[in-house]
Amino acid sequence: MLRVKAGDLDKMGLLFERYNRPLFAFFYHMTHNADRSDDLVQNVFYRMLKYRHTFTGEGEFRSWMYHLGRNVLNDSVRENKGRNNVDVSDLADQLGGGTSADGGFEQQQDKDLLHQAMAGLSSEHREILIMSRFQELKYEEIAKVLNINEGTVKVRVHRALGELKKKFFTNERR
Rank of each mutant, 00 (worst) to 15 (best):
R3N: 11
K5V: 00
K5G: 11
A6I: 13
G7S: 14
D10Q: 03
K11S: 11
M12A: 13
M12I: 06
G13A: 04
L14C: 05
L15Q: 03
E17S: 12
Y19R: 07
Y19D: 06
Y19S: 01
R21A: 02
L23W: 02
F24K: 09
F24G: 01
A25C: 11
A25D: 01
A25F: 05
F26A: 01
F26M: 00
Y28K: 02
M30A: 13
M30V: 09
H32V: 12
N33T: 10
D38R: 13
L40D: 02
V41H: 04
V41S: 01
V41D: 01
Q42I: 01
V44M: 08
F45Y: 10
R47K: 12
R52E: 07
H53K: 14
H53T: 13
T54W: 10
G59R: 13
R62L: 09
W64D: 01
M65V: 02
H67C: 15
N71E: 02
L73C: 07
L73N: 00
N74G: 08
N74H: 07
N74R: 10
N74S: 13
N74C: 08
N74F: 05
S76D: 08
V77G: 00
V77H: 02
R78Y: 15
E79Y: 13
E79P: 15
N80V: 09
V86R: 01
V86H: 04
V86Y: 08
V88G: 10
S89C: 09
L91I: 08
L91C: 06
D93A: 15
Q94Y: 14
L95G: 06
G96A: 15
G97Q: 14
G98W: 03
T99G: 05
T99H: 03
T99L: 06
S100D: 08
A101P: 03
D102K: 01
D102E: 08
D102T: 09
G103E: 02
E106I: 04
E106W: 12
E106G: 13
Q109M: 13
D110H: 14
D112G: 05
L113Q: 06
L114I: 05
L114F: 12
Q116K: 10
Q116N: 07
M118F: 12
G120Q: 11
L121P: 00
L121R: 13
S122L: 06
S123D: 02
E124M: 00
H125F: 01
R126L: 00
E127K: 06
E127D: 04
I128V: 09
I130F: 15
S132Y: 08
S132K: 15
R133P: 00
F134N: 10
L137H: 04
L137S: 04
K138R: 15
K138C: 08
K138Y: 09
K138P: 09
Y139N: 12
I142M: 10
A143K: 11
L146P: 07
N147S: 10
I148E: 03
E150A: 13
T152W: 10
V153C: 10
V153H: 05
V153L: 12
V153I: 11
K154H: 11
K154M: 14
V155S: 14
R156I: 03
R156N: 11
H158C: 02
H158I: 04
R159N: 12
R159M: 12
E163T: 15
E163M: 11
L164P: 00
K167S: 10
F168K: 06
F169L: 15
T170V: 01
N171Y: 08
N171S: 12
R173V: 02
